[in-house]
Design a protein around this nucleic acid. Sequence first.
DNA 1: CTATTTTTCGACCGCTGGTCGACTTGTTAC
DNA 2: GTAACAAGTCGACCAGCGGTCGAAAAATAG
Lengths: 208, 208
Amino acid sequence: MENPVKYDKILDALEELLKSQTIQTISVSEIAQTAGIGKGSIYYYFPSKESILEALIERNYEKPLETAKALAEQASIPPFTRMAMLFQACRNSSMELASTDSNKPGSDTEGKSLIHKKYLNHLITALKPDLTEIICQGIANGEIHFDHPAALAEIVLIVLAVKLDNSLVPTTREETEETILGLISLLEKGTGNPAGSLNFLMSFSKDF
Amino acid sequence: MENPVKYDKILDALEELLKSQTIQTISVSEIAQTAGIGKGSIYYYFPSKESILEALIERNYEKPLETAKALAEQASIPPFTRMAMLFQACRNSSMELASTDSNKPGSDTEGKSLIHKKYLNHLITALKPDLTEIICQGIANGEIHFDHPAALAEIVLIVLAVKLDNSLVPTTREETEETILGLISLLEKGTGNPAGSLNFLMSFSKDF
DNA sequence: CTATTTTTCGACCGCTGGTCGACTTGTTAC
DNA sequence: GTAACAAGTCGACCAGCGGTCGAAAAATAG
């Protein structure tokens, strides 16, 4: 049976608590209390504390990304437009769980590294096939000149994912912008496109 | 005073235990027992369990990287040679602590993500200034044509670090080779170098 | 030697993630 | 109705955790 209402209540509770704490400092009793249920019931729905976190990550990352991918998969739309849609999807789904705002310096060292790793991993593996396909379409159209579409997709995704999640390699907004600018320039020169044609990638770092 | 022998014994003990366990499953008592000292003494040398791990990471990653950097800093050597030396340094210092061999599937989910994150972070921030300087030298020499040396350095380091640490985005050896090949091709076209001139980067994926 | 500081140690503390059996609630059968 | 059984709830309880502490031991000083 497994009442889905309580199941989601537990996830909601953890999500709420994660806004001001790390997974290490949150106890199962605290989750239970916040969810308004007994601690024992937690283990009726989840086998372990970590599994709660994994379910929450699933709920917050997997689903929005899937729907965004569906949008980007419509082959009728031109490649660069689809690419922009895909990137916007990353942007929207990115890191609302693992935001590092207002934490004491050094306090999150271990706390959210699992979330960040899972996110990075998921983002890249989930979007690589789609971006590859988009690039292949661009190659077929003659808009992109490059011999390694899958590699290009992965490179772009890796750099974007790492820079989006700026806890992995923390930098200032200016540095992030400079890196994205460099990536754009590298891509333009590498794929035989005129300078400025890939500027839509810049939309990322705008509100960073 | 802080007897450095005991200090290192503790680090040795943790290093030994990490070969068959994750940081979560290792208890401070276990470290003390393995090191052959009392548990209380641990806290005479380290303020917390996490700080032991950090010191171990420091000992294994920071030092070899520093010496390698010193090598690469000799400005008399031509840029591409220095670049190769720098990359070989990454290769050597990479991931001996966080190797994922022979672990039960799914068992390392949380265990080593902190080590991986710290390594990625450290590798990129430590080497970026050096690689940037090398690229600038290449630009001055006319061997590299690119407008964003720092960005280029960061992009290359991010992609290499993520692919070297293949736990972040696990891929097969073939996929890794393909991605590196694509990066080389992108760099050659992006920096105005003939195809094949950057093949020394390939030495990375050889024994992967 | 004594006096003082540095180092070692394990009992101890609050608390953790997780277990367990008692308990309540819901469902079905008659 | 109610008896029987399953599904769901719960908090006391457990072993073990990271970390503290003061007493003891070892080293150093005068």
